[in-house]
Design a protein around this nucleic acid. Sequence first.
RNA 1: GCGCCCGUAGCUCAGUCGGAUAGAGCACGAGUUUCCUAAACUCGGGGUCACAGGUUCGAAUCCUGUCGGGCGUACCA
Length: 590
Amino acid sequence: MSKEDDPHGQEKSYGPLSAFRLAAARTIATVADLPEETVYGLLESPPRPDLGDFAFPCFSLAKTHRKAPPMIAASMVETLNASPFPELITAAQATGPYINISIDHDRFCRAILELVLAQGESYGNLETGKGKAVVIDYSSPNVAKPFGIGHLRSTVIGAALARIHRAAGYEVFGINHLGDWGTQFGKMMVACMRWGKPGENDPDPVKTMFNLYVRFHKEAESDPSLEDEGRAWFKKLEEGDPEAHKYWVLLSDIGRTEFSRIYDRLGIQFEHFTGESFYNDKLTEMVDLIKEKGLLETSQDAQIVNLEKWDMPPALVKKADDSSLYLTRDLAALLYRHRTFQFTKALYVVGMEQTLHFRQLFKVGELLGLDWVEGCEHIPFGLIRFKEGRMSTRHGKIIFLEEVLDRSVDLVQKIIDEKNPELENKEEVAHAIGIGAIVFNDLKHRRLKDVQFDWDEILNFDGKTGPYLQYSHARISSILRRSNETPTALPEKLQLDLPEEKDLVRRLATFSRVIQSAADESEPSYVSTYLLDLAEVFNRYYNLGGKNPANRVLCEDQEIRSSRLCLVLSVKTVLQKGLALLGVKAPEKM
RNA sequence: GCGCCCGUAGCUCAGUCGGAUAGAGCACGAGUUUCCUAAACUCGGGGUCACAGGUUCGAAUCCUGUCGGGCGUACCA
């Protein structure tokens, strides 16, 4: 219960809501005979908005008061009602074991909407990360393989985390730790030499590489000497063999070109595009350091760090043939990154199957006495699987990301032609929605869950999807266009009396907290879920106008109309901002 | 074998630092458009929160065990 020791910190994290929460806590504290901070920490949200804005559970008082919680609640509310409420508080009522506090609705709406209108797209931003640098290693595809749907996860989760951390005030360095080094490169060289490398005029060099990759692994099953040959060529590459280097340039260029095109489509930019090869000249220093600390051992001709004490298999630093491994390069990268960026946090957005690798990596860092390794964290995520089982590039069982994007955009194109054929810049919108649907689909579930690839589901644009959010945004844009006015300030008297309106404002108020927890837990889906809830309330609200024109935003009464315009503009701002955090565009029309 | 992750409606999931009647979407059935974009909205059926113990005033949530699925477990990344 040490959380309550820091009311200031909490005040910050509740954002614009904190003043009201504090007032509620103060109110309860007077009758509960508890410190204000304790009450502040215990406050909950009632399950239904009509019950009130803050709920105080009386269970914990049962022992000291020697009474049943509902009776405590009732008698405390009686006391509260006997004298006038403090500022910002309008009502207290006992419902079972809870005291529900209602806050000053007008002041609340005014405070929130004023803030959103004033801050615009920076609404929700925090300063918790101010002065801190965070390094995010994400996407990091293997150059020798095509970009499959499986790579989408690291890419979009990492990109979202980069934006979310920026919104939380951090300085972010996104790094694409391209897999452009390692044994698999030697294997690709062997494949090229045996079966022909992608030529200069190859229309689809990626496809050619993919075929070579699959063929190599198929033939290696019956001829294991291929593997040895691959390892030998990688060793040559590391030793600076010119022929090996030539192949390396050819292959990594093909990969880089392909990936750049995909990142463009996804709207992702990296601060650093430094692959594993970048650390080739930094490996010696790393190995020397390990040796210096007396951690290096020779085992079965390989150089290792023994991690038996920590119930882990040994960390392999050098292979028997003295060439480097994934871990060697990651250790070098770790050192380099801290030196270069002085990070407080370093996130590795890499699949869950590599958990052991990162445990070993961080443990070796710790053994080397690098105390800052504490700030390093593996951010794992679940696999994308077929219904029939695992995807495997080696066996050619893969779905290309570009195919998914293409099909999605095509389908959106068709839907637009059907629903809104007059739409200008159709292609641009189709791109925004088609890509957005795929990206959002990947970010709407909690990271750790395995996801099953299903064409029907990924190309479904109804319900809890990216297009649903974009559609809500477009609806608001349409209202604002028709209104012929852009609200810049709140009207004298803010009139938002529908329960849906209050609900919307309440949700707007929690946006910064959502960003905070998404950053703290590296969980972009918090933002997705939040946006879906917000849009759902908005759409319900919007549909009220279908039955009764007085409930429309663009209603007769000028004052109500202005109030509602401010509200929906705020909702639009948050939708747009939230989608932007996830890497999804929000078109004005669709 | 051991380690990590997951198990909530037919399907996909939210809810998980314990709290009020376990919520959505998809699919299925029935409705809503002379009126702010029907990619929307409303209503309906549908649940032993994998199972068994334990802690607690209170457990989908915490602990232990069992079962089921996934991943990993030295020269791949």
